[in-house]
Structure formats: structure tokens, C-alpha cells
Amino acid sequence: MATTLKISAASLAALFAVLGDAGRRILGPAEVDGRIELKAVRTLAEVAGDQIQPVLSAKETAFPRVERLLSYRMAPGKVELQDYDPEVQPTVLFGLRPCEAAGFNSLDAVFNWDTRDKFFNARREQLTVVGLSCTQADDACFCTSVGGGPGSTKGSDILLTPLPEGGYLAEILTERGEALKDLAPALFQPANGEDKEAMLAKVEPSFEHQGLAAKLPGLFTSDIWAEQSLRCIGCGACAFVCPTCVCFDIQEEADTKQGQRLRCWDSCGLRQFTLHASGHNPRSAQSERWRQRIYHKFGYFAERFGGPMCVGCGKCSRACPVDMNLKEHLTQVYEV
């Protein structure tokens, strides 16, 4: 399916107008109140250029931090259930880094194995991902250790890669990408053997994820988890910013006549996550919760779905108040 084309900066700017006219909402990294956040934009000029990636991931566009699952009305001896369908707008996620784009694959897997989650799917089906290859990386990035890379096409419908001579290489990767291109085919030109790698960031692999996964079963009782997690304060920041973390809570909000059931993000790092009403807690120590995070992502998930539940974006490390650098920790585990 994949075809490789080119698009100039001016044509890309023009594409924004075409998308707007076609009723697509465009979300891209842009500055808001001095911070880079994923935000609705109309023009290419609004998109923040010189930045690695926003703090929060784009998972919110398919898996919002709070969403309704159902509502109901109550009367004596009677309950009336109301199903709910989210209202979604066709959306283009513009300028998503390849790591984040790949993150959607993990969400797809969890929300659709065994049974299908219609809330996630309704939103996901309306998303077209226009990825943007990375020309810079930082000390938190480790995409190349978990099967990705600064120019990886995984998860993107179209991947744009900046070219030294200006403009972008445009890889049209999926039907959705094709449909987007077909809105303004004239804006694209055939590629001419351009070097995709020329401007890509260099991210040296720090470990090898299959090797890491193979190590885990033997390390369950190792001291390394307690040692690594000593400074972890057990907040939910790492999981909430993560593009692949999918754990959620279901909460009820009601008065005496009506109510609704809401799904909200949750994190295995929080003490309350596994706490029973009786007071018993199967993972009562922070070290056990830290170990769960690592084992779930790199062991259990990988075993069930065939790859790690981590794209090496480094968001967790950047967001962590106490600098729990995941790349550093995983490398340590790998080298045990």
C-alpha cells in the first residue's frame, strides 16, 4: 500500500486549509499559556516547531481522561438504563511523533482483544494520524530499544519526514492516509530518491526488548525493584502521560434520581489501585507496584500481544517528579 511522495512546506500549509474545509478537526502540538499542548489548530504556523513532544500523550483523543459509559434514571422499583454513544468529529492528529503514533497499537490491542470497546473504537475510527519524524531526541527517548525509531512508520497513516532541502517526504501508509491525501492530491509530488535518514535524530539503542523480557521471569524476587523505586513517590504521573498505559477506573456519579457511570484513567503505581474494601492490598509496597509496571509492560503484555507495551517516548521519565528515568532503569535491569 505504502507510497512515498513529497510535500513542500507551502503545500503542507495549504493542506491545513483543505482539511479545515473538509470538516476535519486538526489537533497538533502548539503553545498554550507557555506550555506545549495538543490543541486544535487551523494553520501550520500555529504548530510548535522546535520541540520534542507535549507532556501528555495523544491517547486522550481516543481514550479521554474521563468519559461516560452509560447513564440511568431511578424510581422506586424501577431503573431505566441509557446507553451512550460518544459524539466524535473526524480528526487529524498532526505532527505526532512516531513513538506516540505507535502507542495507539497497544491501546488497539487492549480495547479490542476478546471483546470490543465501542467507546474507544468510535473515537479511534475517526482519527487520521499524520506522524512527523524526529530530528531531535533527548535523554529520556529510547524508541530504538523497543522496536521503534525516529522515522518509524508504525501507527501513522501518513508519515512526514523533514528533508534537508526543505519540505517533507510523505509516506502514505494506510487507506486512511490515502483518503487524506486524496483530498488534495495536487499538493503532493512524486518522491525522487530523497534520503529519509538525512535529518533523522540519532537514538542509540540502550537495550534490547526481547532480551529484557527474557530476563524478567528470573528477576521477580530481585532487590533491584526495591532499590530502583526507593525515590518513587507513587503518584500516577508516569501512567497518565503514557501513550500506551490503559488501566482505568470506573466511577459512579449520581443523585437520588439519576446517575452516570464514568471511566477515568488509573495507574498501577497508586496504592489505591489494588486496595480491597477489606483493607487487604495485594501490592502494598511501592516496590511491588513499580515491579508490576515494568512486568506488565515488558513481560505480561509482550507475552500476550507480541511486543512491549512501551514505545520509548520517554514521557514518563520527563513527567516524573523525582526523575525515575525509565531508559536508565531498564538498561540496568537488562544488564543485571
Binding site: T115, V246, F248, D249, C268, F273, T274
Partner: peptide, 9 residues
């Protein structure tokens, strides 16, 4: 929470 193998709990 979910009973469906999704919420992770």
C-alpha cells in the same frame, strides 16, 4: 473494575 480484561486492575 471491568471484568473484561481491559482495566488492568
Amino acid at each position: 473494575k471491568c471484568g473484561l480484561g481491559k482495566c488492568g486492575r
